[in-house]
C-alpha cells in the first residue's frame, strides 16, 4: 500500500528562508506521528507542505498518492489542517460556520449535527457568534468544521496550545477517534505525555530537517508560540 506521506529531499522556502532544508519522511496510512523539535525547526511548514499549502521548492513529495508539485488540489481536499488560526468567520454563528464548511466539502446535514454533538457545541452555543466564544470554544468549533470533511490525513499543529482542560481532552479524543477510524494523524505538540498513551511514532525535526525517529520521551514543554507562524508565503 502506498505511503500517506512520502517526502524526498523536500525543500520549502518561505521568501528566501529555507524553512525546510531537505526533508526525507515516510508515513504509512493509519500511523500516528508526533513531530518533536524546538521552535522554528520547521514543524509548522512541514505540516503546511503536507496539506498542499506550501510549495515544494526542490525535492519531491507525495501525499495520499498525489504529487505535491502537480496535484496539490487533490491533496488539499483530502486532508485537514488544524493550525493556530481557527479558519472561522467571526460574524457567523458556530452552526453557520460548521454548516458552511460542511457544504463546501459536500457533507450533509447529518454530518454537521454529528460533529457538533461530538464537540459539545449544542444548544445555545450553536447559535452564538464565533466572535463571542472563548478560545477553547473556538478551537472546538474549528475542529468540528474539520471533522465534517472526513479527512484521510489529519495535520494538527499544536492542538493543545492555550486550551482549557475540557478542550484538551476533546483534542485527545479526536486523535484517538481519527486513528480508530483508520485515518493518519501527524501532530506537532509539546505535550508529549498527553500523546504518549497513543504510542505514536516520534519524529524529531531540527533545523528544517527530519533527524530520524526518536523513542518517545517527555521533554519539558517550550513556549507554544512558534516563531515561524508569522512567516507565511505570500
Amino acid at each position: 500500500m502506498e505511503s500517506a506521506v512520502r517526502l524526498r529531499a523536500a525543500v520549502t522556502l518561505l521568501g528566501r528562508f529555507p524553512a525546510l532544508a531537505g526533508v526525507d519522511l515516510d508515513i504509512s496510512p493509519g500511523e500516528i506521528v508526533l513531530l518533536k523539535g524546538p521552535n522554528g525547526a520547521g514543524k509548522t511548514t512541514l505540516l503546511r507542505l503536507c496539506a498542499g499549502l506550501c510549495t515544494l521548492s526542490t525535492g519531491q513529495g507525495w501525499v495520499l498518492g498525489h504529487d505535491l508539485s502537480s496535484e496539490r488540489r487533490m491533496v488539499r481536499r483530502r486532508v485537514a489542517l488544524l493550525g493556530h488560526r481557527t479558519g472561522l468567520y467571526d460574524d457567523l454563528t458556530v452552526a453557520e460556520n460548521v454548516g458552511f464548511w460542511a457544504r463546501a466539502a459536500g457533507a450533509g446535514r447529518q454530518d454537521v449535527d454529528e460533529a457538533m454533538e461530538r464537540l459539545s457545541l449544542t444548544g445555545r452555543l450553536a447559535d452564538t457568534r464565533v466572535a463571542r466564544l472563548s478560545a477553547g470554544q473556538r478551537r472546538r468549533a474549528s475542529i468540528a468544521s474539520l471533522v465534517v470533511r472526513r479527512p484521510e490525513l489529519w495535520l494538527l499543529d499544536e492542538p493543545h496550545a492555550g486550551l482549557d482542560q475540557q478542550t484538551r481532552d476533546t483534542v485527545d479524543a479526536l486523535v484517538r477517534g481519527a486513528a480508530a477510524a483508520g485515518a493518519t494523524v501527524v501532530l506537532a505538540t509539546h505535550e508529549l505525555e498527553r500523546i504518549a498513551v497513543l504510542e505514536p511514532r516520534v519524529v524529531s525535526v531540527v533545523g528544517g530537517v527530519v533527524r530520524g525517529d526518536d523513542p518517545p520521551d517527555s521533554q519539558s514543554p517550550n513556549s507554544p508560540s512558534d516563531a515561524e507562524d508569522d512567516r507565511r508565503v505570500s
Binding site: G52, R76, R77, R85, G87, L88, Y89, W101, S145
Partner: peptide, 10 residues
C-alpha cells in the same frame, strides 16, 4: 482568521 487557507483546502 485563516479562512482563506481553509477555502483552498476545501
Amino acid at each position: 482568521d485563516g479562512a482563506a487557507d481553509r477555502l483552498l483546502l476545501s
